[in-house]
Design a protein around this nucleic acid. Structure first.
Lengths: 350, 350
DNA sequence: TTGTACGCGTTATCAT
DNA sequence: ATGATAACGCGTACAA
């Protein structure tokens, strides 16, 4: 006995494939094929179905399709934050590449909390994404257990060293920051300060800091000039960092920010105090954000291919999803130092 | 006759509710209830089911749930961009409020193209979201036809004037920019330039510009000092804008940016040229981005409750989705002028 | 408090 | 080139 449902609930008014099939006088499966493999229909039939679908405002129900096909064509992405970062660029790269294969993005941000990240992933997994993209490799054990148990493809971005869950794309934060620090030291700077990220325990920021420390130590320079702000505000951290470091070391002659935003904050504080950049105080950043090229003086910084990282991640996911063998070795996309105007020799040495 | 499927396709290895039911020796529906209405199960049963689910790594399949219940608990959001904007804050507000009701976000960006926006919405609709959030009210007819035909709840943000599809939350860009311009004029500025957005035809930027024009005209000041950059780079537009406006009007004594980023670019260019801000050149922004408080000099700007707009939007959606009557009148969240250091009287008048 | 039967809208499989 | 039928995994309605 068939029991009729009371009524449709708030689901808007959607035409179904069945409606289209009836109106076009074809079977349901033909409607399905008109959208998924149009080339396999007779041109006549295809045209008729398309017209009817158009007239009825038919929009295929991907939810039903997913359930049936067990492929969601969705990739879940969790980033620490979207503001003041290059993750937005990376996501654009992901989207660009993913859209080519008809995939979409389910996006969330974790506010740098591994626990929150795990929660989010758990929730996103309910939507049965075909793959997952994470930033970095600082994850909670719960998350690692989940994704490995399920065996879903995972790409970790901005992560090269440390344990990899599945696939990874990144570059060496350590090498990059060491190179930058060496460049600053090469300009004759001796008392180099470092403005660190506000959230401890994130591997890529620790690597940057260690790269800085390695470089100053190798050059016999002080390695204690590190400022770490508790604030969430990165520009403000840069300002506070300059102030604090200058107080603890009046001979301070350079500042390196763990991001361009921190460096920009330091430049602002120098402007306020009338400290000339770069001759008196040299300042370097990390990331080559848009502000780096425009700020006065233009910021010497590290550029990494953020957009390309997203593309690579997408390609690796696509490959793995389609059953290809993907190298387990993390992909190193490298970095480059962008020389601009904020780092220079001392005025007297110029 | 039952035909067995060949094998499960690439879907990872997921436990189903059936698996849990069997292992816990209850019926399938009991497993379902353990997750959706745990309070209606006997504590004993609940605990047993939960333990089994945990052991099996069971993650409910929301896709199946959506299909069955016809409620996706997903809200689709399309923004013009995520970089250099306050939309990120608005989205955080949305997420915060939405998560309270167990809703999630499906996010895409349109790069300020109404056609692209319509395409994106069409694709997102395939996932049967319960509601839609859009930025502004510059939409393609195709989009408008789609959403009204379906009758899905829609909220337009950062939009108060102009035609509303369904619901709206915003403030008056015209009033805000007129107020800001008046404030600048009140400081004795006569030759006020305006750096406009690079993408024409967006109502809220047109309103801002019109607010500027209305104010300068009412004060008998020149209304032609408007620079519009073709570039996508907002900082750079600010720099170029200052240069161009200064060339066409050497007496230029103030610049207003259509966003804080444009204003910051103008400040950078002043720094490069040795033009003092604010005494020689006063500069005002719009948006109260994080940089506004940190840049030197700190930027006088317009603050609008970006985060709260997201919350409001979410609340309105929730209400409408749950069948409540929602006022058709757009919600005005207002704005305020944030007085900082980048706008001041002329040095001689000080 | 728990269970049974059915259907959500689509695609996979097999058949013509 | 097109069709018939059976899943996909869950929630709803109703029953016990």
């Amino acid at each position: 006995m068939k029991r009729a449902r009371k009524a449709k609930r708030s689901y808007g008014s959607w035409a179904t494939g069945k409606d289209v099939a009836a109106a076009a006088k074809v079977s349901l499966i033909t409607v399905s094929r008109a959208f998924s493999m149009p080339e396999r229909l007779a041109p006549e039939t295809l045209k008729r179905v398309q017209k009817v679908a158009e007239d009825l405002g038919y929009i295929p129900n991907a939810v039903a399709g997913e359930l049936s096909s067990r492929r969601s064509k969705v990739v879940a992405v969790v980033v620490p934050t979207l503001s003041n970062s290059n993750f937005a660029r990376t996501i654009e790269g992901l989207v660009a590449r993913l859209n080519k294969d008809g995939y979409e993005l389910l996006l969330s941000s974790s506010a740098f909390s591994p626990d929150r990240e795990a929660e989010i992933v758990a929730t996103l997994l309910e939507r049965r994404p075909d793959g997952i993209v994470l930033i970095g490799n600082d994850h909670s054990p719960k998350l690692e257990k989940m994704v490995t148990a399920i065996g879903i493809p995972v790409v970790e971005l901005w992560a090269l060293n440390g344990p990899i869950l599945d696939m990874a794309v990144g570059f060496s934060d350590f090498d990059a920051m060491r190179s930058m620090t060496c460049h600053v030291l090469d300009q004759g700077r001796k008392y180099v300060g470092y403005v660190d990220f506000h959230t401890p325990g994130i591997r890529r920021y620790e690597e940057r800091r260690n790269g800085f420390i390695a470089a100053v130590q190798a050059n016999g320079c002080p390695d204690q000039l590190i400022f770490s702000s508790p604030a969430q505000k990165d520009y403000e951290s840069g300002r506070l960092g300059l102030a604090a470091l200058l107080q603890s070391e009046p001979r301070l002659d350079a500042i390196i920010g763990c991001t361009d935003i921190h460096a920009a904050g330091a430049i602002f504080e120098c402007a306020r105090r009338g400290i000339h950049v770069p001759s008196v105080m040299s300042i370097a950043g990390f990331g080559d954000f848009e502000i780096a090229a425009s700020i006065e003086p233009a910021l010497t910084t590290i550029r990494s291919p953020a957009f390309e990282m997203g593309c690579h991640a997408a390609s690796m996911l696509m490959a793995k999803i389609h059953g290809e063998d993907v190298s387990a070795k993390p992909k190193d996309v490298g970095f480059e130092i962008v020389l601009r105007d904020s780092v220079a020799p001392h005025a007297s040495a110029a």
